[in-house]
Design a binder for these strands. Sequence first.
DNA 1: GTGTCAATTGACACTGTGTAAAGTTAATGC
DNA 2: GCATTAACTTTACACAGTGTCAATTGACAC
Lengths: 196, 196
Amino acid sequence: MSREPNSTRDRILETTVRLLEQKGGRGVRMSDIATHSRVSRQALYLHFASRAELLIAATRYLDEQLDLGKRLHGSRNAASGVSRLELFIQFWGHYIPDIYAIVKALMLAEASDEAAAAAWKDRCNAVREGCQAAIEALVADGMLADGWQPQQATDALWTQLHITNWENLTLHCGWSTEQYVERMTAMARSCFVRQT
Amino acid sequence: MSREPNSTRDRILETTVRLLEQKGGRGVRMSDIATHSRVSRQALYLHFASRAELLIAATRYLDEQLDLGKRLHGSRNAASGVSRLELFIQFWGHYIPDIYAIVKALMLAEASDEAAAAAWKDRCNAVREGCQAAIEALVADGMLADGWQPQQATDALWTQLHITNWENLTLHCGWSTEQYVERMTAMARSCFVRQT
DNA sequence: GTGTCAATTGACACTGTGTAAAGTTAATGC
DNA sequence: GCATTAACTTTACACAGTGTCAATTGACAC
């Protein structure tokens, strides 16, 4: 899995992630990344076409480091629709804190950068697929609450789990990760699971 | 209420709002606003200290134009906690589309601008107060669902009603304003109102 | 007239991204 | 030993968009 920072490229990616985490995803310039990677600013452009490309590569790099696939395993193999929903929220609630800084940088870049916007949209759509799978597992069990079409329930769950909401609840309102997971799970159950 | 654009200042504000609405809150430069106000770019700085100041003034201007206070009247005078919650969501769901573009510009400016960030935070806190009042009206009726403290319920409702969620559900998922209001109301009821 | 207020004109500073060109260093091949 | 190549450095510059500064104009007031 190429864990050692064998190449300059990897060193840059590592520095990028570290710097973004230190600064909460804000105000990290190309020149900062270059300096801390002990490389000239221009060298960055030998490895990445633009700031957006670098950010995108950094998110991928981090996903690998954090073993995204493995972390998703639990929810994918859930025994019931309800537990799939719960396990997905649990996975996600614990994953966000690890990726927040770098993803925040991507969100901020979205404002001014075409490529970053596309990458960000992509990432969001990946989360949407997780939500869709969870809702469809509910449907399969006949446990989707009345009044919801699968698609609209997916829209709603996906929106609820959006990173900006996590940001608001934890960073602004002071919820802990555990509280976030617990309360989001409770809300999702209230909204989407048929009450027996 | 000084409805006529008596001054250059008002003309600038009007142009700002119009331009932002046309462009969805994105990519409107000071020079664009100046040109369309038929004024020099530098004249803008005679009336507003910075881009952020101009955006902030524009949101206030728009709130006045839209008679924010009057629109809030219904929910403030609701007969019960549940209806207060419902009327607040209804008000908000119909208000967002009118302010979205300009508020989006403020959100985007937040990324790079200290003053815009503060103004944006302020605005969000105003919405929070509305949410808090609705939750407290529920509490007063003994109708807040089990498992919630008023403060955490306020956090959750406030987050749910955040503009980025409206953006996601309407602009990306294609929900209509009516659908947004109806479904958000249903979700809020599921989550926060004690089931009888 | 004189003062002053609103606005204009043109020039310029600053920040950060991205580009371009020429030079250095070290490893590889023959 | 020598040429080639790749990775990287240094220096310089272009470009956008915001914000600043100074000198000027026109209109109105007293």
